[in-house]
């Protein structure tokens, strides 16, 4: 499971480095783990279905591109944990949510009061 996640990550990294697009067999050759082209294709198709990768037919092969910027993926990964309501609430368990500025100040004061004792 962790290995597959690593492969997804290195594939996306390679696609972000080559905004003009990469063929699957070139991509497989570029990756340090030297995966089989079929393995890379499987992951590419999966990522295409998830909307992270787009592909375009060039001759007899597909040219693959990143469909989203890395910043956008990071932002989406962050947002799930920052959203206050909606169906996303079941997705993650975050450490702490947002508080009003007054509460934040009160918390800091309580902590300082304890530390200075």
């Amino acid at each position: 499971m962790a290995r597959l996640g690593t492969l997804e990550r290195s594939i996306m990294d390679a696609l972000w480095e080559h905004p003009d697009g990469v063929f699957a067999h070139d991509l497989a050759a570029k990756l340090p783990s030297q995966p089989a082209t079929t393995t890379v294709l499987t992951v590419l198709v999966r990522l295409t279905h998830k909307g992270l990768v787009s592909r375009e037919r060039v001759g007899r092969a597909h040219l693959y591109r990143a469909a989203v910027e890395k910043d956008a993926v990071v932002a989406e990964a962050m947002r799930a944990a920052l959203d206050e309501a909606g169906d996303l609430e079941g997705a993650v368990q975050r450490f702490v949510g947002t508080v009003s500025p007054e509460v934040a100040a009160a918390l800091r004061e309580a902590l300082d009061a304890r530390d200075s004792r």
């Binding site: 920052l82 508080v99 009003s100 009160a106």
Partner: peptide, 29 residues
């Protein structure tokens, strides 16, 4: 860590506060 990470709600937002954080800090202290 709780106090450091409790992000103040963006200004103008409804500020649906994390209801538990005050109680959590108080019981930890």
């Amino acid at each position: 860590a709780l106090v450091a990470m409790a992000a103040p709600a963006p200004a103008g937002g409804l500020g649906v506060a994390d209801a538990g954080v005050v109680e959590r800090v108080r019981r930890l202290l």
